[in-house]
Write a protein that binds this DNA or RNA. Structure first.
Lengths: 228, 228
DNA sequence: GCCACACCGAGAGCACTGCTCTTGACGGCG
DNA sequence: CGCCGTCAAGAGCAGTGCTCTCGGTGTGGC
């Protein structure tokens, strides 16, 4: 085999190094990632970076995919716990929050305001939906185990769209349950963004407890019994 | 009087024109506001703009305050309706969403990822809290009218902070009610950001209905009876 | 084994950015 | 009326994303 020729391998290594340095710059400097600075840090000409990423946006896209995958893995691992369903949801929420606190700029990259002319390519979606799939999976499991009331069906314009979402999560899942799970994820996402983007400054300091307070409300809405 | 000398008046007009053109650029071009382009559009040298705003960040701060005030006014006007409390909350939520849809980049400016080295000065907070005050006011009124159950008290670390928030909204408001209102606002904010930032793409098209679906869940959590 | 080809790094250069400093000119207050 | 403070403008600095061209080098086909 040896399909990876020497040239292809050093190219892969170089690509990885650029991404690594870019992530470090993102963590240290903030959102305005400078391609030239990354190149300078590696020790090569800025123009050489363009051999690996056609543009700054393409580099950002690669970082976005990595971030989605990293967050998705963290969420999946937290969601896989053997506890009660509600407990698993809460644990996953805390895991997502901690991931975000450790990499605030990567969180901003994926859930903050989109960069100017940037439109997420199709490649990102499979990585992007991992965390919602993990959360939705908990709800779907709970429903399959009979631990979740169906709730009242949805009105007209929402029902068919909710059905599509439900079919992705688990065949036979009631649409309204799927939409509650989706809404629950958006709430979690919004709460974490609010903390990270400074909206809670001088208002709430016990952030972890406040997030759990909100998640308990969410779970009650979804219909998952939550034990203290 | 005539405290506003001719010089001071043309200065105020110039300041306003810069802000107006900057807002237009923001709406057309996107987040990366160029001070030079604004100056070019007005027809003056870029260096002259610095007579009015010491830096690009200061211009952004002015735009942020304007955005907060504009959104706050929209929310206050929607929240003032004479309908049932739940209806007023929902109407306010829709008003906030429509404001955001009409000015997506201004929304991103205030609720999206913060700009790199930027820290919101103290001047912004009075404008920033107007919308949460409007929403919290509805809840406080409902509680005063006896239309809202107290719910169970908060556990230790949250209680004192919730008390401070409650005191701002209305004297005597139970802390847990205030925190539910705050959480409800964060949910609303997160849901709108999710729509604007593209998280619902190819998933939910009936955005207005989906937002209302989520708000009804929020209101049930807060304890406000919502009639269909 | 060799050689053309594809790839790669470096440098110069373009158009743009935020921001500073200096130079004149003009308006308004004492 | 004079003069001080404010103003617009231009040049300039350091930085950015990106393109192009130029030599050098690994690689696959003959």
């Amino acid at each position: 085999m040896k399909a990876a020729s020497l040239r292809a391998r050093v190219r892969a290594e170089m690509t990885e190094e650029i991404k690594t340095v870019a992530k470090r710059h993102l963590a240290e400097e903030g959102a305005n990632l400078s391609l030239r600075a990354v190149a300078r840090d590696i020790g090569m000409a800025s123009s050489a970076v363009y051999r690996y990423f056609a543009s700054r946006d393409e580099l950002l896209t690669a970082l976005i995919i990595d971030a989605y995958d990293s967050l998705g893995a963290a969420a999946e691992s937290a969601a896989a716990g053997g506890d009660a369903f509600a407990r698993r949801w809460i644990d996953t929420g805390h895991a997502v929050r901690e991931w975000a606190l450790a990499r605030p700029h990567e969180w901003a990259l994926i859930y903050g305001s989109p960069v100017p002319g940037y439109a997420a390519p199709r490649d990102t979606v499979t990585s992007a939906i991992r965390v919602i799939l993990a959360l939705g999976g908990i709800v779907a499991e709970a429903h399959a185990a009979g631990a979740l009331p169906d709730g009242e069906p949805l009105a007209e314009p929402l029902a068919p769209e909710a059905r599509s979402v439900a079919d992705v999560l688990a065949p036979g899942l009631p649409p309204q349950v799927a939409f509650r799970a989706l809404g629950g994820w958006l709430q979690l996402c919004g709460a974490i963004s609010a903390e990270l983007f400074g909206q809670l400054q001088n208002t709430v300091e016990a952030r972890r407890e406040f997030l759990e307070f909100q998640m308990r409300g969410t779970l009650a809405w979804i219909g998952l019994e939550v034990t203290p």
